[in-house]
Computed example of a mutant assay.
Amino acid sequence: MDDKLLLENENYKKIEKVIRYIDDNFKEQPSIDTISEYIGMSKFHLIRVFKEYVGVTPIQFLQSVTLNYAKEHLKESKSILDSSLDMGLSSPSRLHDLFVNIIGVTPKEYKESGQNVEITYGYGFTPFGEALIAFTKRGVSYLGFVDNNKEAIFARFKELWEKATLIEDDKKAQDYLDNIFIEKKKFDLYVKGTNFQINIWKALLNIPNGTITTYQDIANSINKPKAVRAVASAIGSNHIGYLVPCHRVLAKSGAMSGYRWGIERKKILIAYEALKN
């Protein structure tokens, strides 16, 4: 296993703990000394690790990201999304161009829950925590973050592809994760969902890296402005985290809610992408 990824995974856990602490205590505006004491690191080491990973210090994150990011960027999200949808596929700002082409299962494969489909899966490390990834010859078919509960994440994956032939290979899984998170290679996604769900997941690919939007904007983008609840349900059913960026969608109020792999991770992903964009 790559030592760099192991270190990044440990750093992620520490940052996640800091984010959770800031989220619970932002009204008190805790000092860097208070935060470093809580995390059990010297403040200088904490500042260095946090800034290396996120791009700002914990206090800058507290003041500029945690409290203000969602509300400030939400004001512009509709125009950003509309502009993205108007662009051609050659636009370098689109995640679709960087990563993903979605391939839906056939109606027969959907009905049979993956029968006669061979899926390789395994566990590995990413900069955002340990993950379970699965893939077929046609593309990535699952990507979820573990958070110390392998049984639950595997059960969710197995339920989705209950009749598929599963082959565990952690080495190949880590190679896939390296190519996604380190090498930034392009991937096809082999997804199992209804036509409506797949259309929503495709719409998510139009959200530019480093920006956010709302469930209402996604509903508007597919010409179903009254289908916000159905859109939210489809987004919540996304089984390929990160590559299909459901973390970039917020409630109209700007609330960070409804992320399958943890609110802290959602905040980190949004902040990371905004600061690295």
Rank of each mutant, 00 (worst) to 15 (best):
13 K>A: 10
15 I>N: 05
18 V>F: 08
19 I>N: 02
25 N>I: 06
26 F>R: 13
26 F>V: 10
33 D>F: 09
42 S>C: 11
44 F>G: 13
47 I>H: 13
49 V>S: 12
50 F>T: 08
51 K>G: 01
51 K>T: 15
53 Y>D: 07
53 Y>V: 08
58 P>K: 05
58 P>Q: 09
60 Q>Y: 01
60 Q>G: 13
62 L>N: 09
72 E>Y: 07
75 K>C: 01
75 K>D: 09
78 K>N: 05
79 S>C: 00
85 L>I: 12
91 S>W: 03
92 P>Q: 09
95 L>K: 13
96 H>V: 14
98 L>E: 13
100 V>P: 04
101 N>G: 10
103 I>N: 14
106 T>I: 06
107 P>N: 09
109 E>C: 05
110 Y>Q: 08
111 K>W: 06
113 S>V: 00
114 G>M: 06
114 G>Q: 07
121 Y>W: 08
125 F>I: 02
126 T>E: 08
127 P>Y: 01
130 E>P: 04
133 I>L: 03
137 K>N: 15
138 R>Q: 14
140 V>W: 02
140 V>F: 02
144 G>P: 05
145 F>C: 08
154 F>T: 11
158 K>I: 03
159 E>N: 14
169 D>W: 02
171 K>G: 00
172 K>H: 05
173 A>I: 01
177 L>G: 01
180 I>C: 06
180 I>W: 03
180 I>E: 06
182 I>Q: 13
186 K>D: 04
187 F>C: 09
187 F>M: 11
188 D>E: 14
192 K>M: 14
192 K>S: 14
193 G>P: 10
194 T>C: 12
194 T>F: 09
198 I>M: 12
200 I>P: 07
201 W>C: 10
209 N>Y: 15
209 N>E: 12
213 T>G: 03
215 Y>K: 05
215 Y>P: 03
220 N>C: 00
220 N>E: 06
221 S>C: 04
221 S>R: 05
222 I>H: 04
225 P>I: 00
225 P>A: 03
227 A>V: 00
229 R>S: 12
232 A>R: 13
233 S>H: 08
236 G>R: 13
237 S>M: 11
238 N>D: 11
239 H>F: 11
243 L>D: 08
247 H>D: 14
248 R>W: 01
257 S>Q: 11
257 S>D: 03
261 W>F: 15
264 E>F: 00
266 K>S: 13
266 K>P: 01
267 K>C: 02
271 A>Y: 06
273 E>S: 11
273 E>V: 01
273 E>T: 09
